[in-house]
């Protein structure tokens, strides 16, 4: 079915409190949708994919647009923090650079002025660009519901395309990241059909840090976008790297494993074979980039 020329009818409510949001969710059920930047929601409503009678605008609630960093507690990002806010925030850039990088990989500058981190995650698209970054950073989602707040680790959040562990009567208020690992380096590599501005055909987030917990002395986390029904941790590749000396051979083997872990589909954006191959290419490139950063830092320390 073709998209409508404009948005279908709905009511708009600007939420005044957390309680009001929960009350509206409980009473309205599926007729109620939460609105932040609207860059997913409004597009889908015009397309007829999403229907709603009421949109509840939650972005103005207290704390929704703030970024708070504390070296002991880590980072708390309000759910309605925009991509541009993230990408330009000094703390995020200094301590969670991969998140800033992922945020600036989303869409275009204008869209990033509206698109929010929380919306990107709640939308639960496999192509969500910030998901791999939040995954490798060990993020937790703060959900507010009738029983108060609870935290869900991001690795347990995504259940399928558009499906998440968020209950119908909950909403996301913030994303929490643990304190940055000492000396960590990360990168988010995105391949689209255009150089920038496209959705990810494949996205790969890689984070590495010195670690005494694994024999090689470095731990790596890898997460993938757009190559499975959900954003995916490449756990087999991570395990392999936990047991091998970092370097070309290990990275090549890990990249191959990551490609095998991916469960891509054929769609108009790309086919299975290419997506798999690109997981390998980008994972390898990502590992090498991160490794260069780690090696430079360690030789810098040594000096």
């Amino acid at each position: 079915m073709l998209s409508r020329p404009g948005l279908p009818s709905f009511d708009y409510v600007r939420a005044g409190s957390h309680d009001e949001v929960v009350r509206l969710l409980v009473t309205g059920g599926p007729d109620v949708r939460l609105l932040m930047g609207g860059t997913d929601l409004l597009v889908r409503m015009r397309d007829g994919v999403v229907r709603a009678r009421t949109l509840v605008d939650v972005k103005h609630l207290p704390g929704m647009r703030t970024i708070a960093y504390d070296s002991a507690a880590g980072l708390t990002v309000g759910a309605a923090v925009t991509m541009n806010q993230l990408a330009s925030n000094a703390d995020v850039r200094a301590h969670y650079a991969i998140l800033a990088e992922a945020a600036s990989a989303v869409a275009s500058y204008q869209v990033r002025n509206r698109a929010t981190l929380g919306g990107n995650l709640c939308n639960a698209s496999p192509a969500a660009d910030t998901a791999p970054a939040v995954m490798v950073l060990g993020g937790r989602l703060v959900l507010c519901g009738p029983e108060g707040e609870r935290e869900v680790p991001i690795d347990e959040f995504f259940l399928g395309p558009g499906k998440s562990a968020r209950q119908a009567n909950e909403f996301l208020t913030a994303v929490r990241l643990p304190p940055p690992r000492q000396g960590a380096r990360g990168t988010y590599l995105k391949l689209g059909r255009n150089r920038e501005g496209d959705l990810a055909v494949v996205g790969v987030g890689v984070l590495g840090s010195p670690s005494s917990e694994v024999p090689p002395g470095y731990a790596f986390s890898i997460a993938l976008a757009s190559v499975a029904p959900v954003p995916l941790r490449a756990t087999a590749a991570e395990r392999l790297l936990a047991g091998q000396k970092p370097g070309g051979a290990a990275f090549a083997a890990a990249a191959q494993l990551a490609a095998q872990e991916a469960r891509p589909i054929d769609d108009v954006r790309s086919g299975v074979a290419y997506r798999r191959a690109m997981v390998e290419s980008l994972t390898r490139r990502g590992l090498e980039t991160v490794w260069r950063g780690l090696s430079a830092a360690s030789s810098g320390r040594g000096r």
Binding site: G37, G38, T39, Q110, N113
Partner: peptide
């Protein structure tokens, strides 16, 4: 700040 006015509700 630049935005896509087609994706901003008037009431917003």
């Amino acid at each position: 700040e630049p935005v896509n006015s087609c994706l901003v509700l008037a009431v917003e």
